[in-house]
Design a protein around this nucleic acid. Structure first.
Length: 455
DNA sequence: ATCTAAATCAATT
DNA sequence: AATTGATTTAGAT
């Protein structure tokens, strides 16, 4: 969260941020943490850290501060002559009655950064930091200057769904994933993603140009999002955006702000996908044939099509499973104890995978809206960047390339033959076409797709 | 304190 | 609308 600085007279306010404001983390303790550091703009134009001389609070609530000494990399201002300075020092500031509370006692240390922990979450407080003045590489211990007054609004305890007009504790990635997951098709055009976010989070009804640019950057930059072109019967602006079927539960660590690892598609895989792309017409034809076969098989045996076939693919799923971004789960997570793995641990990759492409399955029995299977569309792929050259369209029917890293034993006999380029996607379809025949070994031996998490 | 994911700004297509 | 690069900010440990 950004803070507003009133009366800042110098450059180089190092910023203040609120972390641990995620409802998961703040629930229970209601502690909020703010980081603070200060900088000084020097005459040479370099920005160097100056140290904090004093901190004052004006708040009605109790404040606890952790002061952390930070080594300054850009100058020699921080010497290690403060040997007795503890790693962390906790000071409690008494609750005030509108007076500024001074937390000095910093005269013997050079404090470059501090972290404030606030016991109470729901209040507005003011904080001002006094720093020592730096004169031409000399630190003055006696001259102080108020360089800025910060007014921070602690994030209120979030409402269940709205977060009022405060910035919700979700990254653009999680917001986007939330939007995509919210619709039955599991894919949305950009404008609908905007709309979803703005509808639910008033914070994003302002500064639209800024955050929407950031969001677009996220869509392009992160491999967890894939672009799906519109079919001719889907007029409209822009492509659809969907989640990469292999991205799994990106927020298994319980944080919607920052994933543990970034989801990236490997180069090798990209190349193989590119290869697959060259066989698109073959793939499309094959899929079409398979779909027809399944259709007839289904017509003979069933009155309704299972929404997803993941339960047939080796991982049994409770029928009550909800995706992490269903409203129910978001709410559930918000009030869950940090560290709880109950939901994410059981998160089914298969389910998300297949659930991500319900249109693929639906269209197989929906002759009213037949899939366009022309050569213009084909196996979707990964680095669409590398697959989609000037104007080349992308598949309306993405083929999940790697449903799971876990080898799957199919029920009901030997693995039917399937072209290598479809060996992966086949697995999620094959239970519906048991009549197909022989067994290739690609299923296990050809790691066609390696979706990885990289630094 | 460090690592690096995420955000931001912005040029370009 | 989308891609990409450069840079800054900040979450998590």
């Amino acid at each position: 969260m950004r803070c507003h600085i009133r009366g800042a007279v110098l450059d180089g306010w190092g910023g203040s941020s609120c972390c641990n404001h995620h409802p998961l983390l703040s629930h229970g303790s209601e502690r909020r943490t703010w980081k603070c550091s200060c900088y000084l703009a020097h005459q040479d134009g370099m920005r160097r850290r100056d140290h904090i001389r004093s901190i004052q609070f004006n708040t009605e609530r109790k404040v606890v501060c952790y002061f952390t000494k930070v080594k300054d990399h850009s100058s020699q201002l921080c010497q290690d002559n403060q040997t007795d300075f503890p790693r962390k020092r906790e000071r409690a500031a008494a609750q005030s009655s509108g007076e500024w509370i001074d937390i000095p006692q910093l005269s013997n240390v050079k404090l470059y950064s501090c972290v404030f922990h606030f016991i109470h979450a729901e209040y507005v407080f003011s904080c001002r930091v006094l720093r020592s003045v730096h004169h031409r590489a000399k630190l003055s211990a006696t001259s102080y200057l108020k360089f800025g007054e910060i007014t921070l609004s602690a994030m209120p305890r979030p409402g269940r769904n709205t977060y009022s007009d405060q910035k919700p504790p979700y990254s653009y990635i999680s917001l986007t994933a939330m939007a995509i997951q919210s619709c039955p098709e599991k894919m949305l055009p950009l404008s609908e993603i905007y709309k979803f976010i703005m509808d639910r989070f008033p914070y994003y009804r302002e500064n639209t140009q800024r955050w929407q640019n950031s969001l677009r950057h996220n869509l392009s930059f992160n491999d967890c999002f894939i672009k799906i072109p519109r079919r001719p019967d889907q007029p409209g602006k822009g492509s659809f955006w969907a989640l990469h079927p292999s991205c799994g539960d990106m927020f298994e660590n319980g944080s919607f702000l920052r994933r543990r690892k970034r989801f990236k598609v490997m180069m090798m895989m990209a190349a193989q996908e590119h290869l697959a792309q060259s066989k698109l017409s073959d793939a499309a034809h094959y899929l079409q044939q398979q779909a027809k076969l399944r259709l007839s098989a289904l017509a003979a045996t069933s009155t309704h099509l299972p929404q997803v076939s993941s339960s047939n693919v080796g991982v049994s799923q409770p029928s009550t499973f909800k995706h992490p971004f269903t409203i129910e789960n978001i709410i559930a997570r918000e009030y869950k104890v940090p560290g709880s793995q109950s939901m994410s641990a059981g998160y089914p990759l298969h389910n998300q995978l297949t659930a991500a492409w319900p249109h693929m399955y639906n269209t197989m029995v929906d002759s009213v809206s037949p899939i366009s299977m022309s050569g213009d569309y084909g196996a979707f792929g990964m680095p669409l960047k590398s697959m989609c050259h000037e104007g080349q369209t992308l598949p309306a029917i993405p083929v999940p390339i790697k449903p799971t890293p876990t080898p799957v034993t199919l029920p009901g006999g030997p693995t039917p033959h399937i072209p290598a380029f479809l060996s992966n996607s086949y697995r999620s379809l094959s239970p519906m076409s048991p009549q197909a025949a022989t067994t290739p070994r690609e299923t296990h031996t050809n790691p066609t797709v390696q979706s990885v998490v990289v630094h």
